[in-house]
């Protein structure tokens, strides 16, 4: 662990004057906004890279995840519940149609007897098939590698769900109320893990990663794969890691360590 310190708390407030102030100090690494808002350990790539307000996502960045399956406890689904909480994914008690952006998958190798458990979410492919098939261009890959659905353009044809090898996407089958202000979602469109884009854009960790860290799991590492100095880039350079269905050549941005397949 790099042991870097990082302050990333942004108080929830809607006062634009205060926001401007925050914007101005965004690059400064050591301001404590509220007691206890200090993060030790895994942080984003490097402080200097925090994107300034008003600027576009950069193609020099590729956000990714490295998930260490050995550190993922089969009984733990903190990442899943954090995602549900963060993005307001509470369902209607209908598992077949309720959305899931991240799920824990148990795998068992019948040949060796090894069982493992790991989280699977949108793999944020470099060559995403969902983007290729989308008729309106609603599915797209942002410059920094995050694959998203522009729900203003989505017509709900669900072709992307047919094309995704990871079953990462869900169709919103019912009306939704009480959405989070930062995570709009609505009936008739397709959605999936956004890597918590609202957090990433304000220099915070995705909710699943944070929850995993909080729970002491430390199985999920988020960062910029293109920045050679980032923790994630260093680790993938150092240790073998793999992509789910790497054979398909889609080059997912989510990688797994110690996966037995």
């Amino acid at each position: 662990m790099s042991g870097k310190m990082k302050h990333t708390g942004i108080a929830a407030e809607f006062n634009p004057a205060r926001r401007k102030f925050l914007g101005a100090i965004a690059g400064v690494a050591s301001v404590t906004l509220a007691p206890g808002v200090i993060l030790y350990g895994i942080t984003r790539s490097g402080d200097a890279r925090a994107r300034k307000p008003g600027t576009a996502a950069s193609p020099d960045v590729r956000w990714g995840l490295l998930i260490d399956v050995n550190h993922c406890d089969s009984g733990c689904d903190k990442c899943v519940s954090a995602c549900v909480e963060e993005n307001g994914l509470q369902g209607h008690g209908r598992p077949a149609t309720d959305p899931q952006w991240i799920r824990k998958v148990k795998i068992h190798d019948p040949d060796t007897g090894l069982s493992q458990s790991l989280p699977v979410m949108c793999q944020h492919c470099a060559e995403p098939p969902c983007v290729d098939v989308c008729p309106t261009g609603a599915s797209f890959k942002r410059a920094d590698g995050i694959v998203l659905v522009d729900r203003h353009r989505c017509i709900g044809c669900r072709y992307c769900m047919m094309a995704c090898p990871y079953k990462a996407r869900s169709f919103v089958h019912e009306e939704i109320e009480d959405q989070k202000t930062y995570a709009p979602r609505g009936k008739g469109t397709v959605e999936a893990c956004t890597l918590c884009i609202h957090r990433v854009d304000s220099d915070r960790l995705p909710a699943c990663v944070e929850a995993c860290n909080d729970a002491g799991g430390g199985a999920m590492l988020f960062g910029d794969l293109k920045d050679p100095n980032s923790e994630i880039a260093r680790r993938v350079a150092r240790y073998a890691s793999q992509q789910i269905r790497g054979d398909l050549g889609l080059d997912p941005g989510v990688r797994y360590r110690n996966l037995s397949t």
Binding site: M1, G9, A11, A12, Y40, E86, R204, E210, N213, D214
Partner: peptide
């Protein structure tokens, strides 16, 4: 929901590894 949970999120715990 305000500061404590909803927005200031990142920070509650520390990554222990």
């Amino acid at each position: 929901v305000t500061d404590a949970g909803g927005q200031g999120g990142v920070v509650r715990g520390a990554a222990r590894e």
